[in-house]
C-alpha cells in the first residue's frame, strides 16, 4: 500500500541515500537503526513534511510525492508526541475529526471509543502538561488512530518512557493492533521493539536501508558485517508455541514459561554451550548441530551452527575451541538453558 522508491535527501546533517521499500496493508514495519541514521527524516519525507531531493512516494498506487501533508491523510507521531498544549486531551484527540467536519455526536462517540481501547477515558478533561510520559504517548496514539489513517508513522514511540511503562505499552501495542487493525511504520533504535512488534524490519545505517526482510530473516542472516554488528548477533527463533514447547525449524525447544501461538524468542550467543558429546541434563535444551563456519574475534570465537533448519551462533573462548577440536563440517552438541530464553 506504501511504496517508497529511491528517496534521497540531504537535510540538516542527515543524508538519505536511495531508500526503497514497501509496506503491505495491515503490516507493522519497523525501521531499525542507530540514532543519526536518518530514520526521522525518512518518516518526515513519507509524511510530506520534508520534500525529498529525488525519488517518489506512492500511497495505494497514487503518487503523493508532491502533495502537502494534509492531503496525504497519514498520521504522524513524532518522538516528543507533540500534543497541543493549549487543548484538553479530548480536544487533542478530536482535532482531526473536527477538521473532517463530522457531526458532534459522532466525534464524541469516536473519541470515547478510541480512548476506551487505549485506557485513557479518565484523562479526557486533562491538559497535556499534567500527563505522565506513558499517558501522553497513549493520547498521541489515540489522536493518530481516531482518524483511521491508512498508515500511521511512529518515531521512536517508546524512547521517552521508563523501562516499566515501556514494556507494558509494548504488550498493549500488540493488543491495540488486533483491536483497531492499523498499518504502521515504526522507527526505532531498539532491537527489542523490532523483534516484539515488527512483521518486517528494514535496517537503516548511515542513511541507507541496507536490509529489508522478515524479522527472523534479518536477524538470522544479516546482509553484511555492518548489519550483524549493529544487531548484536542475537539468535532469534520464530516458531509456534504450545504450552512450554516451541516448534521451530524442525526442533522442539523447551520454554521457561507457558505461551501459545506464533512467538519469537531470543538467546544470546554467550549463553550457548558447546560440547563434543551429549550432556543430557534435563534442565537444558540440547541439539546435534553441524559447524558451518568459525570466526575469530580476538579472545572469543563465533561459531555458526546449522541446527535443524535454523542457523544459531555461539560464542566460545579460544581455548575451548581448541579443546573441543571444532572444525567446519563436523558435528557438535549445542545446549542452552530454558531460563536463558527471552520471549518477545
Amino acid at each position: 500500500m506504501l511504496e517508497v522508491i529511491s528517496i534521497s535527501r540531504d537535510y540538516g546533517g542527515f543524508h538519505l541515500r536511495d531508500v526503497t521499500f514497501g509496506v503491505e496493508k495491515g503490516e507493522h514495519f519497523v525501521i531499525l537503526g542507530p540514532s543519526g541514521a536518518g530514520k526521522t527524516v525518512l518518516l518526515e519525507v513519507i509524511a510530506g513534511i520534508v520534500e525529498p531531493d529525488s525519488g517518489r512516494v506512492y500511497l495505494n498506487g497514487r503518487d503523493v510525492t508532491d502533495l502537502p501533508p494534509e492531503r496525504r491523510g497519514l498520521a504522524y507521531i513524532p518522538q516528543n508526541y507533540a500534543l497541543f498544549p493549549h487543548m484538553s486531551v479530548y480536544d487533542n484527540i478530536a482535532f482531526g475529526l473536527r477538521l473532517r467536519k463530522l457531526p458532534k455526536t459522532e466525534i464524541k462517540r469516536k473519541v470515547r471509543e478510541v480512548a476506551g481501547v487505549l485506557g485513557i477515558a479518565h484523562l479526557l478533561n486533562r491538559k497535556p502538561k499534567t500527563l505522565s510520559g506513558g499517558e501522553a504517548q497513549r493520547v498521541a496514539i489515540a489522536r493518530a488512530l481516531v482518524i483511521e489513517p491508512p498508515l500511521i508513522l511512529m518515531d521512536e514511540p517508546f524512547a521517552n518512557l521508563d523501562v516499566q511503562t515501556r514494556s507494558k505499552l509494548l504488550t498493549e501495542m500488540k493488543r491495540w493492533r488486533r483491536e483497531l487493525g492499523f498499518t504502521a511504520i515504526h522507527v526505532t533504535h531498539s532491537f527489542e521493539e523490532a523483534v516484539s512488534l515488527g512483521d518486517r524490519v528494514g535496517v537503516m545505517l548511515k542513511g541507507r536501508l541496507v536490509q529489508v526482510g522478515s524479522v527472523g530473516e534479518v536477524f538470522s542472516r544479516p546482509a553484511n558485517e555492518e548489519v550483524a554488528r549493529f544487531l548484536g548477533f542475537e539468535n532469534i527463533i520464530e516458531g509456534i508455541a504450545e504450552g512450554r514447547k516451541l516448534r521451530a525449524g524442525g526442533l522442539e525447544i523447551e520454554l521457561p514459561l507457558e505461551v501459545s501461538g506464533r512467538v519469537r524468542v531470543g538467546i544470546r550467543p554467550e549463553d550457548m554451550i558447546l560440547s563434543a558429546g551429549p550432556i543430557g541434563s534435563s534442565a537444558r535444551n540440547e541439539f546435534r548441530a553441524i559447524v558451518d563456519s568459525i570466526e575469530e574475534l580476538g579472545p572469543l570465537v563465533r561459531v555458526h551452527l546449522l541446527v535443524g533448519r535454523l542457523i544459531l551462533r555461539a560464542f566460545i573462548t579460544r581455548s575451548s575451541l581448541l579443546e573441543l577440536g571444532i572444525k567446519p563440517g563436523e558435528s557438535v552438541y549445542v545446549g542452552f538453558k530454558a531460563s536463558a530464553i527471552h520471549i518477545f
Binding site: A47, G48, P68, P69, E70, R72, F84, F95, G96, R100
Partner: peptide, 25 residues
C-alpha cells in the same frame, strides 16, 4: 514547536488552519 504544526497538518489541517488553531493561540 514546529512539530506541533507538522502533526496538525498530517491530521488534515491546511497551513492557514494550523496557524489559526495551533500557532496563533
Amino acid at each position: 514547536d514546529e512539530g506541533l504544526e507538522h502533526v496538525a497538518r498530517t491530521l488534515g489541517a491546511s497551513r492557514f488552519r494550523v496557524f489559526l488553531s495551533v500557532s496563533l493561540p
